[in-house]
Design a protein around this nucleic acid. Sequence first.
DNA 1: AACACACGCGCC
DNA 2: AAAGGGCGCGTGTGTT
Length: 959
Amino acid sequence: MAMGFSIHGAAIRHPFICSTSLCLSSFHRGAISGFARGPHVHPPLCRKEVDFIALKQRNKVNIIVQKVLQDHQNGRIPLTDDYPKIGRGAADLVHLDGREDDHPNNCQDAISQDLSSGEKCSILLSQPKKLPFDSQESEGSLPAGDENVCDKATCPGNSKKSQPVKKGTNKVVNREQLACIYDEVLVVDNISRTKQVVWLLTTEYKHFFHACDTEVANIDVKVDTPVAHGEIICFSIYSGPQANFGNGRSCVWVDVLDGEKDVLKEFVPFFEDSSIKKVVWHNYSFVSHALRNHGIKLSGFHADTMHLARLWDSSRRVNGGYSLEALTSDPNVMSSKRFHVDDGLTMAKISMKSIFGKKKLKKDGSEGKLIALAPTDELQREERKLWVCYSALDSISTYKLFDNLKAKLMHMQWSLDGVTGRTMYDFYEEYWRPFGSLLVQMESEGMLVDREYLSEVEKLAIAEKEIAADKFRKWATKYCPDAKYMNVGSNVQICQLFFGSTLNRKDQNECLPDSKSFKVLNTENAIEKGKKSLSKYRTIELHNICIKKLQTQLYTASGWPSVSGDSLKVLAGMVSLNQTSDDQNLTEDVAEVADICTDEDTSASGTAYEAFGEGKDGREACQAIAALCEVSSIDSLISNFILPLQGNYISCVSGRIHYSLNINTETGRLSARRPSLQNQPALEKDRYKIRQAFIAEPGKSLIVADYGQLELRILAHLANCKSMLAAFRAGGDFHSRTAMDMYAHVCKAVEEIRVLLEWHPQLGKHEPPVPLLKDVFAAERRRAKILNFSIAYGKTPIGLSRDWKVSVEEAKKTVDLWYKERQEVLLWQEKQKNKARTEGRVWTLLGRSRCFPSLDHASIAQRGHIERAAINTPVQGSAADVAMCAMLKIDRNIRLKELGWKLVLQVHDEMILEGPTVSAELAKAIVVECMSKPFYGTNFLKVDLVVDAKCAQNWYAAK
DNA sequence: AACACACGCGCC
DNA sequence: AAAGGGCGCGTGTGTT
């Protein structure tokens, strides 16, 4: 049999497969022969083989995994000094208190990293032999740091070390350094040379590692997804120092813009050959879509250095970022000597801006500080030599980066559910490499959106918003004339209106001014007094409009009065008298605000009632604030969904939106951007039924499947909490069971069958014989529910006491009540905090880790934050692991593939697939099976994974 | 005017 | 000397 040798080779290399001796599936020829021939020490686990085994031996797989991995333990690689240093100073920790937004360095698009101003210091990595510019390097210092590009904000990890350099010299040095690469690069712009190169790549060098990178023009990475946007103007391939593409040149640069026609096409055999398993990219997603725009379907994906870097250290988002430049400039990243190839090409990537950027000229003709960048195609033509070097350096540094990160990951032990013996690079090969491919596949697939529906909804939403906004403005104008033009979507303006002259709660020296001016859009195109021409903006003056001081209990993190939806609701008076009000309660009340507020009797209870002089005025105030509430909720729907989902900046090939799915969170969750799909309005708040716009193609349906209480189940498993495990095993309403555990009187009522835990309507019986627990003991159940969620996040009794408006003592008593039956959770949480303290990191279910800065030098606040993150990360991260496994399982399911079902979206614990309506029910059953047994067809958790799935034509109907 | 940043908010 | 984890997006502000 032709397969015999390959399988044999693979089996010997991989004990997992060897010991199961069930690897005779014939449909994975490529994968097996691929790594049997390769030069790897650690061949990738052939996942599909395992899948196959799993199908055969569903119940035994985990035992097999454990056994095999334990057998393999002898070969474990110890931790070395290569391990990431987490010695961040206290100054660098401030980010923990604030939110780090979409930093350019974190942007998934390689191009945007280049274009962004998140510049890094360019440094030399090690002593190069050939390059003439090593004289600058000195231990522990960072040469060539341009003051204006290497400041505290963009270079936190290095800010202390960086030394000021003479202004103006840096760019010259960069350009000189870069130009040295030219001799290593073979410029390819004609067909005959192309054929030679492709021949080498697909034959002699077939099993080399190849690092590639492309440069793309005509794309605005801030707003466009690369799907159907952007054209490749050139690309480079570096295949390591052993490669010689002619005259000893080890790197290839291909001119797609001005080279002979069809040069790119000639590379198809290289790009599309799935047996070339060694292609490394930095940000594979972007390149893959860009090539797809030219009709090329990338294959042979080997690694994405961005994902490797995230796996190695998930906390770089605020500490350097994950751009190629930031990573290759970081000595901590490039320190691995193990794979170091000393070929003289030891430069870190240098950003496009610092090489090609030109200072913009100010109006008076002098040089400004803003740096402008010419379009990429222009640079390629006009700065050709340097451009070739720049582009070539991208693939060269990707290659180096891969070497270093691989070495690092191979030095990190991988422990899966207590089973050790393999490394995090194995983890990458087994999970994140295929996951990376899957995400790209899903991005390409995208999701169909009903634009007509959205445009209808948009009209309605805007109309309703305007009505509510006018209602508020009209009322406010009575007290403050300029409020007529205010932006009701601005919290700052609202805050000014209600809380002017209020002291900051945290810093009594800070105070909101009584009156303040704002710049607002000049919607009426009015020409202001004293101004001659029509301006886009106008200035308004807003002051506190309350008759008496408006009282509030709710403040923002920085100490100012909060004007969030919940806070406004208290002012308007919907829930303020409800002592047991909680998030759920508030949420439920939101939808009814408008209705109730038109009713004169009920609106009198808000705090605003007194502040505006009670009586009729007070009632009006409450109604106006309720209208304001409505505005902000509508506004967020419009700006987050209704507009972006129709936006032209989202690639709309046949009406599908192509969001970008990133593994870019510290816990390993996915995030979906452009648009963000993960903050869909909660079902009950979705007044315009946005989910209805997410539809299936004609003849197709959606399957929407979500996990029930995934994170709580994970917590129960991780902590091995008997009480929680028992409650999950018993099934039914988990929060009711928690309430029963916590409160003796609830428990007694259940025992005496005065209330029912749950009720499933049966034939002939429509009403339960006795009331339900969740109705009779609603308050207790709510409290139990909140605790269930809060405790996983490490919420403190003080925080709870504020939410519940009870004393800290009482909150603490309730928390203790929860822990009483769940001691294991408390112990487990202590253990996690300890790990954060002693080992500097915590682990998820599948063995990914998140590291933390040292607790020794952290302030108490920072320490608290780290400890809570240490408690939460294993829970949230493990849930992400489970979701990922489920997605891989679904993706690999042959039956689903045959039936034509494809994953189109994941929102944390929810999977959405699209496929032919005829097979919807069948596919649904398979999806549920995959999700409830996501680990190669098993579930080794101590709890069941419950999945709720529905089929429908749109997302809304499936909920 | 464009940009980066800090903050506040709402979703899971 | 804080008091729930994670994200993406909008507004406001200061800088160039």
